[in-house]
Design a protein around this nucleic acid. Structure first.
Length: 203
DNA sequence: ACAAGGATCCTCT
DNA sequence: GAGGATCCTTGTT
């Protein structure tokens, strides 16, 4: 039996809550299924958020309806996947930083240049590569069957947290905010030394 | 029209 | 641990 697609209402909530609840969810495209193990929340009024300085052509999908993808190209070569949260017009999202493979192992390995083990999928650019994403997936609705889908998956036992990665341009309070969340008890997480917890136990 | 820099990864050492 | 790859978005002339 196929797992339930997460509906738009799932995303139309507080971004940190959505981020925590996305841990354990499944990203599905074709034969590939990835279980989300690490995320970052980009919140309202957050100087690390691409939307902090208002709407531009690039961040427009983040200002759109919840449950759509926001894909952007980082350093000219990595496609990073975000899931838009909160109400239409707010401009918040959750970045997917790491996953563990559930199905489609051969496809993932091929897209990752034959790499297997945790280095295969721990890092946001690697997740985009494993799913075969490019900018054409920008604004794609993730609750519609047949394309890129997010399904319920299996919950995580406990959550680690720490500061977000690669946001030196942000203001000090936002740099320090513990808005990177990861599943405890798995090796499929990037930069684990910078995380602490378990601080939150899933109910 | 141009220059700068980025929510990174890989290949070395 | 250091450096290069690589191209789009953005703000400025």
């Amino acid at each position: 039996m196929t797992e339930e697609l997460l509906p738009p209402e799932f995303y139309a909530r507080d971004t940190l809550t959505v981020a925590r609840d996305l841990l354990g969810a499944h990203l599905c495209r074709g034969d590939v299924v990835l279980r989300v193990t690490e995320v970052e929340a980009y919140c309202p009024g957050d100087s690390a958020n691409h939307c902090y300085r208002g709407r531009t052509n690039r961040n427009a999908p983040m200002f759109g309806p919840p449950g759509h993808a926001y894909v952007f190209l980082c350093y000219g070569l990595h496609h990073l996947l975000n899931l838009v949260t909160m109400e239409d017009g707010v401009g918040t999202a959750v970045l997917i930083r790491a996953c563990e493979p559930v199905a489609g192992h051969e496809t993932v390995a091929a897209r990752r240049n034959g790499i297997t083990g945790p280095r295969q999928l721990t890092g946001p650019g690697k997740v985009g590569a494993a799913l075969g994403l490019d900018l054409s997936w920008n604004d794609h609705p993730l609750y519609v069957p047949g394309g890129l889908e997010v399904r319920r998956g299996t919950p995580v036992e406990a959550v680690l947290s720490g500061p977000r990665v690669g946001i030196d341009y942000a203001e000090p309070d936002d740099r320090a905010a513990p808005w990177r969340l990861a599943a405890a008890g798995t090796r499929w997480v990037s930069r684990r030394r910078e995380l602490s917890g378990p601080a939150v136990v899933a109910g």
